[in-house]
Structure formats: structure tokens, C-alpha cells
């Protein structure tokens, strides 16, 4: 029974550490304003080479065709708007 308690305390301590570390990081993130201006945050993945608004991946050898098709699609909402 004693050793059982020892293990349980160990597990509980590990669990508490797990949780505490997550909370600490959350506090860090809050302090460093990671949760403000989220709309800009979502755009950090884009850069000059692969900017926002540009598709960047096609099947090899089919890019031109695909771009043409996508261009047609992208013009559709425009037509609706002018009507």
C-alpha cells in the first residue's frame, strides 16, 4: 500500500507539472501579446516569394492549365457583383 501511494504521488506530481507548465506558457503568451492582432498573426506565413492571394502548388506539368481554370473561377464572383 505504501508503494502505491508513492507512485500515485509521483503521477499526481507529474500531472500537476504537465498542467502547470502549460498554464505558465499560456501566461507568457498573454503577457507577450500573442493574442492581440490575431488577424495580422494569421498572415505571418506569407512572404515575398509566396504572397497572400497566390496559389503556390500544382501538379507538375499542369500548372498553366490549373491557373487558367482557377482564373476563370475567380472572375465569376466579379460578374455576379456587377450584375
Amino acid at each position: 500500500m505504501e508503494s502505491w501511494d508513492g507512485y500515485l504521488i509521483f503521477i499526481a506530481a507529474m500531472g500537476a507539472m504537465f498542467f502547470t507548465s502549460a498554464v505558465l506558457v499560456l501566461v507568457w503568451a498573454l503577457k507577450h501579446k500573442q493574442f492581440s492582432k490575431l488577424n495580422q498573426g494569421a498572415r505571418v506565413i506569407f512572404d515575398e516569394e509566396e504572397p497572400e492571394g497566390v496559389h503556390t502548388d500544382y501538379f507538375p506539368g499542369e500548372a498553366a492549365k490549373a491557373r487558367e481554370m482557377l482564373a476563370k473561377e475567380e472572375h465569376k464572383p466579379l460578374k455576379h457583383a456587377t450584375r
Partner: peptide
Amino acid sequence: PKVLGRPIHSYY
């Protein structure tokens, strides 16, 4: 989002 060229719908 990277391949589509548009940011994630709701980053929040």
C-alpha cells in the same frame, strides 16, 4: 492557408 494563398478563416 499557404497553398491557397489566403489566411486561415478564424485564427482566433
